[in-house]
Simulated scan of single mutants.
Amino acid sequence: MEHLEKRLNNACYSIRVLSKYLDLKTLKTVYYANFESIVRFGIIFFGHSSDTNRIFLVQKRVLRCILKISSRETCRRKFKSNKILTVAAIYIQEILIFTFKNINNFIGNPRSDYNTRNRNINLLYPVHHLTITEKNVHYSCTKIYIKGYKKSIYLLLMHLEPYHLQEYFEM
């Protein structure tokens, strides 16, 4: 996680330097290429970690550089108005896409492998006794996929602007 944070801080520095010379549209393009692409890579494995809050703090710093606002000003509605997903929203979106693409790994029917063409997919949570199991990828994929669908998830996440996963689950 420290390596990821270092790479994101480097991207933040480059965006801060470029913000003196580039307009908002170009800065957002640089953000997507140099910051969000790094965050998205492998986020389904580390996105449930408590260390993602450090990544989110770097993301807020980058947003402040892009928008040229002070460090004391809140970013709460700035993500939404600029159509930038928060780290928590990126995690949720990537989990949903991964689950959608690999839905057969999450479907459970212990009695038969026969395809009944049933539209109601029966997703099963992994059997567990420890809360640490709830932090693994398979459990997170199932839980988040049950809560939302791929079709309109981007708009939902943009509207919700979650700072933490709990905000998504409480909606």
Rank of each mutant, 00 (worst) to 15 (best):
Ile97His: 13
Thr99Pro: 07
Glu36Lys: 05
Phe106His: 08
Ser19Arg: 01
Ile84Met: 09
Ser19Val: 02
Asn105Leu: 14
Tyr145Pro: 08
Lys101Val: 12
Ile44Asn: 05
Leu165Ile: 13
Lys78Pro: 02
His159Arg: 07
Asp113Leu: 11
Leu8Thr: 02
Ile132Ser: 15
Leu85Ser: 13
His159Met: 14
Ser70Ile: 00
Ser152Trp: 12
Tyr21Arg: 03
Ala88Arg: 10
Lys28Thr: 00
Leu157Asn: 10
Leu124Arg: 09
Tyr91Ile: 00
Leu156Asn: 15
Leu155Ser: 12
Tyr13Phe: 08
Asn102Gly: 05
Leu24Gly: 01
Thr133Pro: 08
Ile55Lys: 04
Tyr139Ala: 02
Tyr139Cys: 08
Thr26Cys: 10
Lys20Arg: 09
Phe100Asn: 13
Ile121Arg: 10
Lys147Phe: 11
Leu63Asp: 06
Asn10Ile: 02
Asn34Trp: 05
Val58Met: 09
Leu22Cys: 12
Val39Ala: 08
Ile66Trp: 02
Lys20Gly: 03
Ile146Tyr: 11
Lys60His: 01
Glu94Ser: 05
Asn34Val: 01
His129Glu: 12
Arg40Phe: 07
His129Asp: 03
Arg7Asp: 10
Gln166Asp: 11
Ile121Tyr: 02
Glu161Ala: 13
Val30His: 09
Glu2Val: 09
Ile44Ser: 02
Lys68Tyr: 11
Thr131Met: 13
Ile38Gly: 00
Tyr154Ala: 06
Thr133Val: 14
Glu5Met: 11
Thr133Phe: 15
Leu27Cys: 01
Asn120Val: 07
Tyr154His: 10
Ala88Ile: 04
Glu2Ile: 09
Lys150Cys: 13
Phe35Glu: 00
Lys80Ile: 08
Arg72Cys: 13
Ile146Cys: 12
Lys83Phe: 14
Cys65Asp: 09
Glu73Tyr: 03
Asn118Arg: 12
Leu123Thr: 02
Thr29Arg: 07
Tyr154Gly: 00
Phe98Met: 15
Leu63Gly: 01
Val62Thr: 05
Asp51Ser: 15
Ser71Phe: 14
Arg111His: 12
Asn118Glu: 14
Asn53Cys: 08
Gln166Asn: 13
Tyr154Lys: 10
Ser140Met: 15
Thr26Ser: 06
Leu85Thr: 06
Ile144Thr: 04
Lys147Tyr: 15
Ile55Cys: 04
Ala33Leu: 07
Thr52Asn: 06
Gly47Leu: 02
Phe79Trp: 15
Asn122Ser: 07
Leu130Lys: 10
Ser49His: 00
